[in-house]
Structures are given as structure tokens and as C-alpha cells.
Write a protein that binds this DNA or RNA. Structure first.
Lengths: 234, 234
DNA sequence: TGCGGATTTCTTGTCGACAAATAAAATACA
DNA sequence: TGTATTTTATTTGTCGACAAGAAATCCGCA
């Protein structure tokens, strides 16, 4: 019996099954363990999670609501594709949300928020130091998510979370195929953003957020546009 | 047998049940037929819709994902409350999305989009002319939704749709309790926005969207802050 | 061999039923 | 009479099974 099955089957509480399936699937999708386009079979999942199809289905409905899976009527649901054609709309929205959440955090944060943000930044710095790409991607997401929480606008936060998750998939693609050295620059930029937020300097926070977003967008763009042709003779 | 039951039961196609329940509940929530806080009983709904609890449940999960209902574990799910305490975050996000979608529409629309937008505007004008508050609220939402579609950014669009829906509930509250004459000014502002979009004048579109958002925000604010004390002796 | 139609298989959508958890009611007791 | 505790009742969460729809397979025929 695998670890997942044990955790799932050993007298789980009523109502916890859906959350477990949801969290597990979500992580597997965002870490590209389940690549875009993978079919998700309900009975197979129900066997693996050792529970009925009903909670599996509910988790899939929730994931579909967040755009992480696509449900084809009367056919298998698949992991949502990454829409490389409309990446610019993603960049546009991501940049705007970086700016808005950082601005709002500078305006409305309280001391407790700062502690949480600094804790996430410490974990991010440790991941970069250890050159652990996966941990870096996840902690980077948590860092910015905590800033959004400090901004206290749930509408921006929910959109931003969705964008950060989608970005997690794209970044995962990037760092798995292209073993660049991890960007220490991001650690410094994060520190500067924290300082601006703590000082309640909205203008500086905005400027830093914009620059930070540009950094990430350019990284991804250079990856997408990179020349992958092999130098072979034909 | 009621109309709803007939529509639902008469050989409905496989997979259409969920959509029907979802659409029906959604409309009833947004039109305040189901006021915030109302409990939603699954078996009662399944009898009314003459189908099993399974599709009902799936519809409720989707509605919960959009924040229209709140699920209390092991207890009845209720229609989501309107958070008057944090209304300013709603206004902030709504204004920004008005601006972004209108700007993008001015930049990226094509002739077919304009036709759709103009059609919605015609319906909106007719509703205002007829002094039909409910129709005005619904067509106003559709008008701005079609502008968002023309802007072609699905991330902004989905957030904007959510905000417009929430606004539909708030406006419904407003026009039901306070029989003001309906604002003709909105019709003119819509026409100006269409003209700016058609001319691809991004700056003007932005300015008009901002002003339009301010109008609506001020209307709602004056409603929320209105003095409701009755002049009675005690 | 290639193609169209029938058949089979496989997966999902829906159903009715049971069990767990909570709320409401009833009872015991001070 | 009021409060704590047990009992009942109601509502949700989960399950296994069946049927519908689509894809895959098989078969007949040119």
C-alpha cells in the first residue's frame, strides 16, 4: 500500500476526502507531474485514493471552476492546456496584479502581515541558495500570495492566486527544460519590495512590483521564443 | 406541474441537468429571489427540479466556487452574504476592471464585437426607457460583459464578470428599496464609450470608464450611507 | 486492401440508499 | 422552573450500481 493510499484510507473524516483529492491533484497539475492534456480517469483515481467516485467528481468540478482541468462532456476530463498563443494577456494581467497587490500591501498591511511575508521570503532565499528550482517556484508563489493577503482585497487576491498558479506551471516548464542558474536577483528585489511595503511607500512599491513583473515576463518570453533547433545536417 | 418541472423533466439530455440547476439558482440569487443567507436544501431542490441530488450538488459546488453560495460543512449551504463592511475593495476592483476592459476593447475589438456591444446597448436603452429596473440591471451587466469580451483578456473578463454579478445583487437591492427614476445619464455615457472604442481612442475610453465607474460607485455609496431613521417620537 | 456500418467496450452522468454529523426535541434532575 | 443530558430527526457526505453516450473494435463487402 502506498503512502497516498494509507493517508487517504485510514479513517479519514467525513468531508476530508474531497479536500485531499483536490489538494493532491492540484499539486500534481501545478508541478507538471500531470502534464497538460493528460486524461484524468475517475475510476482509476478512485482506486488510487481508495474512495468512491463521488468525492473525486466534486474535486474535479472545483478544479474545472479554477480552469485547471477541462471537462469534455461525456468524455474524459483532461489537465488544462497552457495557452501559449495568448500568453501576452497572461503577462498583462499578472503585471497589473503584481502592482495592485503590492501597492495595497504598502497601504493596508499591519505588523503581523510583515512577519508572514518575511517568513516566506526567508524560505524563498533558502530555496535559491540551495538551487532547488521546485522549492523556489513554490515559495515565490507563497511570498507574493502573502503580499496579496496583506493588501486585503479578496477580488484582486483570487485573480492573483490563479495567475500565480498558472505561472507556477509555466515556470516549472522553464526550469525543468533549461538548467539555468537560479536568479539571485529575485531575492534582492523581494527584499526591496518588503522594505517599500514596511515604509508604506506606495510609489516605490509600485515601481518595484512593475520591475519585478518585467523581469519574470522577460525570462518566460526568452524561454518561449528560444531557438530549439538542433545543429544537425540533413 | 409547474413550468420549471416540465422544462426540467421532459426528456432532458444527459448532462443538461447541472447547467439548468446552475443557471436557475444563479439567476435567483442575483435577482435576490433568494436573499443572502437563505438556506438551500438539496432534497427540496431535487424535488422541485425533479432530478436526483447528484446534479444539484454539482451545481452547488460550482456556485460555491464563484462565491455565490457558502457551504457550511455538514450543514445546509446558504446564499452568500453581501459584505458591506469591505465594499470599498469591491469598488476599487470594479473601477479598475471597468478601465482595463474598456481600454483593451478600444485596442483589440473587431467590427463583430461592436455589433454585439451596440445590440446590448440598444436593449439597455429600451429598459431605461421602459423604466424597468430589473431589465436595466441585467442589460447593463451584459453591455459591459460584451466590452470585456471584445478586450480579449480572459483573466480580466472572469474577474469582471464576477464583480458585475455581485454588483447586480447590490443594484437590485438599491432599486428595489428606493424607487428613484432610472438614470438616463448612463445611456449617454454608454454611447460615448462605444464611440471611443470604435475610434480606438484608448485615453478617452479610459477616462469615460473611470467616470462611469465613479457614477455607479457614488450611487451605491449614497444608498448604503443613506439615513434610514424614521422621524418618530420616542 | 480499403471503407462503411454494426457491435462491443469503456467512461461518464445519474440515481436511490445508507451512514455520519449536526440541530432540534424530549427527558431527567436539581 | 431552569439546566444538563439523552434521544430523535433532519440534512449532508459517501457509496455501489445502472444506463447513456462516445470511442474503439470487429465484420462484411467491394
Amino acid at each position: 500500500m502506498t503512502q497516498a493510499q494509507e493517508t487517504a484510507s485510514n479513517d479519514r473524516k467525513r468531508g476530508s476526502g474531497v479536500k485531499y483529492v483536490y489538494d493532491t491533484l492540484r499539486d500534481e497539475i501545478l508541478d507538471l507531474v500531470l502534464p497538460p492534456g493528460s486524461p484524468i480517469d475517475e475510476v482509476q483515481l478512485s482506486e488510487r485514493m481508495s474512495m468512491s467516485r463521488t468525492p473525486i467528481r466534486e474535486a474535479l468540478v472545483r478544479l474545472a471552476g479554477e480552469g485547471l482541468v477541462t471537462t469534455l462532456p461525456n468524455r474524459s476530463t483532461i489537465v488544462a492546456h497552457i495557452d501559449f498563443m495568448n500568453l501576452y494577456t497572461f503577462f498583462d494581467a499578472l503585471t497589473l496584479m503584481y502592482r495592485m497587490t503590492t501597492r495595497l500591501a504598502a497601504e493596508y498591511h499591519d505588523p503581523a502581515d510583515l512577519e508572514i511575508i518575511r517568513a516566506h521570503q526567508a524560505r524563498f532565499a533558502a530555496a535559491v541558495e540551495a538551487q532547488d528550482a521546485l522549492a523556489m517556484i513554490a515559495t515565490n508563489r507563497d511570498f507574493h500570495a502573502s503580499i496579496a493577503e496583506a493588501g486585503r482585497n479578496p477580488y484582486y487576491a483570487s485573480l492573483f492566486f490563479r495567475l500565480l498558479d498558472e505561472g507556477r506551471r509555466i515556470l516549472r516548464l522553464y526550469y525543468s527544460s533549461y538548467q539555468d542558474r537560479l536568479p539571485y536577483r529575485f531575492v534582492e528585489e523581494h527584499d526591496q519590495m518588503i522594505a517599500a511595503i514596511a515604509a508604506r511607500d506606495i510609489a516605490t512599491a509600485d515601481r518595484l512590483a512593475t520591475a519585478h513583473a518585467d523581469q519574470i515576463v522577460h525570462q518566460i518570453q526568452s524561454f518561449v521564443a528560444r531557438d530549439r533547433r538542433m545543429p544537425i545536417a540533413i
